[in-house]
């Protein structure tokens, strides 16, 4: 592509960043980001979110958080996907309170959680033994007319099974 003088755009770069991140190759993803910025192409919420997802995948949630903050400092507004990634990241390293904080922040900013956001939080709550809170969130989903999916129910089922076995 580059050899043929076809200039990659924001989408091409974002696709590559995402590709590297999904394989956990965050360092290379950062190189792509540097390359795009050198060409004067500003990363958008999709690019930043992919990078955050990559850091979460390799358990460097603090770095994902720093990208999340950098993004808003650069005037790029976080969307439901960015929040879901951070909430999932925090939940996976058992920082459920941080995840809850972000969930409340979404509500304040009127960014509506989707089934992915809720499932991430519910899984975090379940794995930290806060099943009643998790069930409350399932009720809230129903109240919003949102249907929990197989992933949501699996988290709940897992937590309930583990609870009765002890």
């Amino acid at each position: 592509m580059i050899l043929k003088n076809i200039i990659p755009d924001l989408y091409t770069f974002s696709i590559l960043v995402d590709g590297f991140c999904k394989e956990g190759r965050v360092k290379e993803a950062k190189n792509v980001l540097a390359m795009m910025m050198k060409q004067g192409i500003k990363p958008d919420v999709v690019t930043y979110s992919s990078l955050m997802d990559g850091y979460c995948l390799v358990n460097e949630v603090n770095k994902a958080e720093s990208i999340f903050n950098t993004m808003s400092h650069r005037g790029v507004t976080a969307n439901v996907r960015s929040y879901s990634i951070m909430i999932n990241g925090f939940c996976k390293i058992k920082m459920v309170d941080e995840a809850m904080k972000l969930f409340k922040e979404m509500h304040r900013k009127q960014i509506f959680p989707d089934v992915i956001t809720c499932s991430a939080l519910i899984d975090g709550l379940c794995k930290s033994g806060r099943i009643s809170y998790a069930l409350e969130h399932v009720d809230e989903m129903h109240d919003r007319g949102q249907q929990p999916d197989i992933i949501t129910y699996n988290s709940i089922l897992d937590a309930l099974c583990k609870k009765t076995s002890c």
């Binding site: 592509m1 580059i2 990659p8 989408y11 091409t12 995402d18 590709g19």
Partner: peptide, 22 residues
């Protein structure tokens, strides 16, 4: 190019994606 690079990424052929990009 973006479509093909994305396709290679989706099926985990990252090397082909990079080849195509460069």
């Amino acid at each position: 190019y973006s479509a093909l690079i994305s396709g290679f990424c989706i099926v985990g052929k990252l090397k082909d994606a990079i080849d195509f990009f460069l």
